[in-house]
Design a protein around this nucleic acid. Structure first.
Lengths: 337, 337
DNA sequence: ATGAAAGCGCTAACAC
DNA sequence: GTGTTAGCGCTTTCAT
């Protein structure tokens, strides 16, 4: 059981000062290359690892990135974490996860946490990424942050997103390509920005391909299974039902499948169903769901990257942002009309 | 933009030494109660928060608990995090999440991470909780750890678990109470300890209620949707099919539901289906799945509790452990025979 | 019951 | 290119 080895041990063994070791560890310039090699050899031999507390106390960085999340799906949360961690590890950073319970907790929990931990940056996922109090707190505490898929105030911070409109356009085009011309659409929660973008994409694709727009083919949903179920009942329990339904997220699409099952409509022979998000549930139903995969891990990695490069403290008119590509996942729930 | 306030600021304003402030912050004894009150008032007024890096550098604690996870379901991972964080927050601790990529990364990534971060404890979830290299590393680095639902070596560390056997027994008894006497069972992955316990519970309940055991009613599965689907095909595409199927996890139960759908068997009128785990998918199918809810968040909270109380470094013959209660969730997929 | 002094292991600012 | 000297903000140890 040996004592913890410190920068002094390395310096002694290498015959240099601790400052030189520090330079090597931080990849700073002004070290002769054979000095550097010698130090690195000792580091390897002694298996030396800098103490993160000492580093952050003495320096300006904490080597900690926070991820705040409110209440999105577990699959989403996990993907965000995996993506962010992958990027953080490359730089020796670690991830602190903080669920945000409710509005009431922000001053009581979040504020103390920010000051004790002095994190180098924070990644915000929906819906916290649009919570004005959280943003205000972060700005007040001067902690850089990057938002993932924010809905509003796009000029307020660095952010990472995806082209929801184009994804919905392409899914609709996929359905049209299969021969469908009468396609039902289920809207998401009206407070969620993606809802409108996805609807726009659907409408644009229909228009571009000369499919007549029908108001009675667009039903309100709220992103939940039940709301999708109910919207599907309105859409499908009538004689002139559409040949395909595009639900603007997977949970609602699963509701559509449940209704189809009840009505003894074979999917995809009698009805094509498409979703959005590629949640785990999409692969668990039978037939498996055609959907849009959001590059969630990649978005989180991009967010971490912006933070690590220091781009989250931007200067100028518009904050930096990254728009990532989605992926159309065609499975068995869609087929020719 | 005021300078960060430190323990010295508090000491000055309260007219005491920094040591006294430290005593108050750490709830140490030997402080006169009005001195304590005065200090606390200043802390509140100044909104002082101790710097965690300084604390852990000077002291022996890092105020950090790690959660290692390998590849369980996102819902599981998230529940573990929420449970652990809830308990950690009460003591001002934070959670570092570390996905364990593969066996190859253990020495390369995990070991350095443990020495740089000097975490106060680690929570291990299945299947990492049974990874011998990880356990050996933790023991070598002398980091206390608690395992959640470990499969083997129960005497090796503190752990938290659930009574899988009894849960399976009660689910089977529930089915029998509904009038079923011919109940199919789908086994989980043979490498997973819970698989055997759940099967034992099923077999014991059948025997206790005088239901004849039939080898052709027990099918091998592997905890995946597909394996449940295939096992259900073997069980159900025959003339004398069972009136109920108990799949030993939800994913497989969803496979059973898919087969029932294909065969046009109404659930639960013609076939009762039961699962295990209460994953989100259980509520998303129609009809919703009867299942067993594992108290995952509570188990994680208990694990954090063991760590925070210092019980993970145990003395004596057997390590401390906590066995938590499960919950039978009766939904619509089970009905009278 | 309280305080003074000595670090914890590192980075920063400046010397050489 | 490299070393010296101060801290960073706390806890610890030992006085009083």
């Amino acid at each position: 059981m040996s004592r913890k080895i410190t920068i002094h041990d390395v310096a002694d063994h290498a015959g240099v000062s601790i400052k030189t070791v520090s330079r090597v560890m931080n990849r700073e310039p002004n070290v002769k290359s054979d000095t550097r090699d010698r130090v690195q050899a000792v580091v390897a031999a002694l298996n030396y690892r800098p103490n993160i507390s000492a580093r952050s106390l003495a320096g300006s960085r904490a080597y900690l990135i926070g991820v705040f999340f409110d209440n999105p799906s577990p699959a989403y949360v996990t993907d965000v974490q995996l993506g962010a961690i992958a990027r953080c590890r490359e730089e020796g950073f670690h991830l602190i996860v903080e669920p945000i319970d409710s509005a009431a907790e922000i001053e009581g929990q979040l504020a103390p946490m920010l000051t004790t931990l002095r994190m180098d940056g924070v990644i915000l996922t929906p819906p916290v990424c649009d919570h004005p109090d959280v943003l205000a707190l972060l700005e007040r505490e001067d902690v850089p942050y990057v938002r993932i898929s924010p809905d509003r105030d796009l000029g307020r911070s660095a952010y990472v997103g995806m082209d929801d409109r184009r994804a919905a356009y392409e899914m609709t085009a996929h359905l049209i390509g299969l021969g469908h011309r009468d396609i039902g659409f289920i809207l998401g929660h009206p407070d969620h920005g993606a809802t409108h973008l996805r609807h726009e994409g659907y409408a644009a694709a229909m228009a571009d391909h000369g499919c007549a727009p029908r108001a009675d083919r667009v039903e309100q949903g709220y992103f939940s299974f039940r709301s999708g179920f109910e919207a599907a009942e309105r859409l499908l329990t009538r004689d002139d039902r559409p040949t395909a339904v595009f639900a603007s997220n997977d949970d609602m699409a699963l509701g559509v499948m449940a209704v189809a099952n009840r009505l003894r409509l074979n999917v995809p022979e009698q009805l094509s169903v498409a979703g959005f998000d590629d949640t785990p549930g999409a692969k668990v139903v039978w037939p498996q769901l055609t959907t849009v995969r959001q590059p969630i891990a990649a978005m989180a990695a991009a967010a971490a990257d912006l933070l690590l490069r220091g781009e989250a403290r931007w200067e100028g008119e518009t904050p930096p942002s990254r728009l990532l590509d989605f992926e159309l996942i065609v499975r068995e729930s869609t087929g020719s009309a």
